[in-house]
């Protein structure tokens, strides 16, 4: 049967996820099903960012992409991808490792409930940025500052350094950072710094190889819509997407990141390598959060540590190729 998937994009209409990623997804689905299944993206988001999953379950739209931080209670398994210092600099290798790891260990748990997962995607890992002339190179530097942090676990880690933390949606960050309300911001990748036009306010970035935070996203459609699609077409879609679409998005994202990084270098942002001591201290603060997640997985009958280890191994293997 012919079906049109109403796929929502919560980003602003001119954002590349709405303009490039979803049209690509639509094209792949349409090609795979020889035009029987189409994707339609409404001109403007039909629901607020936190409401994407509920919107799909209730039938506001058929499919959506959602920031996994908003899926903490529905989809606990996928949260490992955003634990402190499990993040990586790149998007492509991480996205693929994430997708494969999730398929291997967690997919059978049917966490997405009334929806079917089509793809996972990771932004580039986030860094620590200073808005003042002095780079942030130690716990003490963080402690004496007002910091905007991505919400969730990262904000807790930064708060534990003694820093005065402001946390909330990234839109708020634009307001707070650009106006000097905070002295630094933590957790967003360089591509978001330029996206939100914060380059001019950001003076330096402290870089670790292991990232304090890496935002990940889920793409899903409702079971109802999925079941309306013929089995042949469902198989065709699965085969056409798989890790290949995930890799494509990651590669696109990495290109965007490279351009953003170049823009920041051009603007004179200083890039400082974080010291191992600083990293070790931050990691120690983040450790309980990792343990928490592993314990939560224990409750679900999943070896959380094995998931984390496999994720890292797959990432390294991908990089090695």
């Amino acid at each position: 049967a012919r079906e049109t998937i109403l796929f929502n994009c919560f980003f602003p209409p001119q954002h590349y996820v709405c303009k490039d990623f979803l049209p690509e997804l639509g094209e792949r689905i349409e090609t795979a099903t020889e035009g029987r299944v189409k994707l339609r993206v409404p001109p403007k988001s039909l629901a607020a960012p936190p409401d994407q999953y509920d919107g799909v379950v209730n039938g506001v739209m058929d499919g959506a992409v959602q920031f996994n931080g908003f899926l903490r209670s529905q989809v606990p398994g996928v949260q490992f991808s955003m634990l402190p210092f499990l993040g990586h600099a790149d998007s492509e290798m991480t996205s693929v490792a994430l997708w494969e790891t999730y398929q291997e260990h967690l997919a059978e748990k049917d966490e997405y409930g009334e929806t079917v997962l089509l793809a996972l995607f990771a932004l580039n890992g986030g860094d620590i940025f200073s808005v003042t002339d002095t780079p942030i190179t130690s716990i003490a530097d963080l402690a004496e500052r007002k910091i905007w942090s991505v919400p969730g676990v990262t904000a807790n880690v930064i708060a534990e350094t003694g820093s005065s933390v402001v946390s909330g949606p990234a839109v708020q960050m634009l307001e707070l950072v650009s106006k000097g309300v905070v002295d630094g911001h933590v957790g967003v990748p360089q591509s978001e710094v330029t996206q939100y036009k914060l380059t001019d306010y950001t003076k330096s970035a402290t870089i670790f190889d292991e990232k304090i935070f890496q935002a990940t996203f889920s793409f899903f459609v409702s079971k109802q819509k999925w079941d309306a699609i013929s089995e042949t077409d469902r198989d065709a879609i699965r085969a056409a997407l798989g890790s290949d679409f995930v890799r494509w998005m990651g590669a696109e994202q990495d290109r965007i990141f490279e351009a953003a990084h170049a823009e920041m270098v051009e603007a004179g942002v200083e890039f400082v390598d974080g010291s191992p001591a600083f990293l070790a201290e931050l990691k120690a603060l983040g450790e309980p959060r990792v343990a928490e997640w592993v314990a939560q997985m224990d409750g679900m009958g999943i070896d959380g540590q094995a998931v984390i280890d496999d994720f890292e191994a797959r990432y390294q293997a991908n990089v090695g190729q």
Binding site: R72, S73, Q74, P151, G152, G168
Partner: peptide, 8 residues
Amino acid sequence: ANARTTIV
């Protein structure tokens, strides 16, 4: 029913 909480 689904026991979610605000982020901060």
